[in-house]
Amino acid sequence: MYTTINESGQLNNYPTEPEMYYAAYPNQEQQSRYALQGAIATLFVTAIILIGCGVS
């Protein structure tokens, strides 16, 4: 950990930064899985909204 001291005696601690890397583009299987998850989430939110409207 990198530490500095300013004029008033306060310490500033700086963490070590992780090495950066580029994300890999998802393959066809991952893309279809993301689409399925999005569809399920949309149905779930729609159902919650409709149930909320029906109860009120």
Rank of each mutant, 00 (worst) to 15 (best):
M1H: 09
Y2I: 10
Y2D: 14
T3D: 07
T3R: 09
T4Q: 10
T4W: 02
I5V: 15
I5T: 15
I5Q: 11
N6C: 02
N6Y: 04
N6H: 05
N6R: 07
N6M: 06
E7P: 00
E7A: 08
E7T: 04
E7Y: 06
S8K: 11
S8L: 08
G9V: 07
G9H: 02
Q10F: 10
Q10R: 05
Q10E: 15
Q10T: 10
L11M: 09
L11R: 13
L11E: 10
N12H: 10
N12L: 07
N12W: 05
N12T: 15
N13F: 11
N13G: 04
N13Q: 12
Y14G: 00
Y14A: 00
Y14E: 12
P15K: 09
P15E: 02
P15N: 03
T16K: 09
T16A: 14
T16E: 15
T16M: 07
E17S: 12
E17W: 07
P18M: 06
P18C: 13
P18R: 11
P18K: 13
E19R: 09
E19M: 10
E19G: 04
M20C: 08
M20N: 09
Y21I: 06
Y21G: 09
Y21H: 15
Y22W: 12
Y22D: 15
A23K: 13
A23E: 14
A24R: 14
A24E: 15
A24L: 13
Y25K: 12
Y25F: 09
Y25L: 11
Y25G: 02
P26G: 04
P26S: 05
P26N: 04
P26M: 00
P26R: 02
N27C: 03
N27T: 03
N27D: 15
Q28K: 05
Q28V: 01
Q30V: 01
Q30D: 02
Q31S: 08
Q31P: 01
S32N: 05
S32M: 06
S32Y: 01
S32I: 01
S32P: 00
S32D: 01
R33G: 01
R33E: 11
Y34E: 12
A35P: 00
A35I: 00
A35Y: 00
L36V: 04
Q37V: 02
Q37Y: 06
Q37R: 07
G38A: 10
A39K: 08
A39W: 02
I40K: 05
I40Y: 01
I40G: 00
A41I: 00
T42F: 08
T42A: 15
T42E: 04
T42N: 05
L43R: 02
L43Y: 07
L43S: 10
L43H: 05
L43A: 14
F44E: 11
V45G: 02
V45T: 14
V45E: 01
V45I: 15
T46K: 03
A47S: 13
A47N: 03
I49A: 15
I49D: 12
L50E: 05
I51Y: 14
I51C: 13
I51T: 13
I51D: 05
I51Q: 08
G52F: 11
C53R: 11
C53P: 02
G54N: 11
G54S: 14
V55Y: 13
V55E: 10
V55G: 02
V55F: 12
S56Q: 10
S56P: 04
